[in-house]
């Protein structure tokens, strides 16, 4: 017999042997296996039913040991996923809440600014009302639209609207005298400040009634001239308008004596700090002009 035929026959025998064993296992052995498995399973079942103390069998413990890690894994994955989803939802919610709060803060800031502006207007109007009551005069309100701080000619521009104004009207602030109207154009009035170097106001020391002339000497600085050296002047004395110049009524606050020095041979050199801070002005009031009675030279006024 050739070698190839021997190998062929040997391979066939082995193959038939394997098939035969498998057949035996499938046909007969499987029945025996079924019987053995069922006996085992019934044993497990009957042992569980006969034991009253609830002690689990080894098989039950093994099944639990196999399933518990799986259940634990599933629960861990579920917790991880649900935690991630919850964090993601919370993040989205926080973003939306943050956006809503930002919008709310922005809206409230705008509202706050508006209310602050309203409050300032209210304060200004309240001061005007108080000043109007105190002065018992009809005041005309004007908004400051421009202040010239740079040139020596100190002035500001008031918007007085359609009420109109007249040249020479005194302009005041609740704190004191501001200046006088020098030019009118439309609803605007140009005001010469008392700190202007060309301005001169008839004034007096309130405490002693000593009169003089207050002039502007520079930015926020005044001086009182023509006060005799013999006059009693003290630092801190209040300087008010004297009402002798035909423009400004008497009693308007001008400022305070800041220093008293030796001037010329005849007069003091008095530095005056203005009562009004012209840099803080946002509104002012125009006093009605009171025309002086016209008296011709040489004529003696007749008392009424």
């Amino acid at each position: 017999m050739p070698a190839s035929a021997k190998a062929y026959s040997g391979g066939a025998v082995a193959r038939w042997t394997r098939v035969g064993i498998r057949q035996v296992i499938n046909d007969r052995g499987s029945r025996w296996l079924l019987v053995i498995l069922l006996i085992f399973e019934f044993g497990v079942l009957s042992r569980q039913l006969s034991v009253d103390d609830g002690t689990p069998s080894r098989v039950e413990q093994g099944a639990l040991g196999a399933m518990a890690p799986l259940a634990h894994l599933v629960v861990a994955v579920q917790d991880g996923v649900s935690g991630f989803v919850a964090r993601r939802r919370r993040e989205v919610w926080l973003r939306q809440e943050n956006r809503r709060l930002e919008e709310s803060v922005s809206r409230l800031e705008r509202e706050l600014l508006r209310r602050q502006s309203v409050e300032l207007d209210f304060q200004r109007l309240a001061e005007a009302l108080r000043y109007s009551r105190e002065s018992s005069q009809d005041l005309q309100v004007g908004d400051v639209v421009f202040i010239d701080h740079s040139s020596a000619r100190r002035s500001l521009v008031l918007f007085v609207g359609g009420d109109g104004a007249s040249v020479g009207q005194a302009v005041v602030d609740p704190r004191g005298l501001v200046g006088r109207v020098v030019v009118i154009r439309g609803g605007y009035a140009k005001v010469q400040l008392v700190s202007d170097t060309a301005s001169a106001v008839g004034a007096m020391i309130e405490r002693t009634r000593r009169q003089g002339v207050v002039r502007g000497t520079g930015p926020n600085a005044l001086s009182m001239n023509y006060v005799p050296r013999g006059a009693d002047v003290r630092v801190g004395d209040r300087i008010v308008s004297a009402g002798i110049d035909g423009i400004y009524p008497r009693g308007l606050m001008l400022g305070f004596v800041e220093s008293v020095g030796e001037g010329t041979d005849l007069f003091h050199r008095i530095d005056v700090r203005p009562a009004v801070d012209f840099g803080l002005l946002d509104g002012a009031y125009l006093l009605p002009r009171v025309e002086l009675p016209s008296v011709e030279l040489g004529e003696t006024p007749v008392s009424p």
Partner: peptide, 22 residues
């Protein structure tokens, strides 16, 4: 599989093992 089912179900242990074997 039956024993695993028994462990998972929580009933009388062994019923599903017998059923699934059969």
């Amino acid at each position: 599989a039956g024993f695993l089912s028994d462990g998972l179900m929580g009933g009388t242990f062994g019923l599903y093992a017998i059923a699934d074997t059969l």
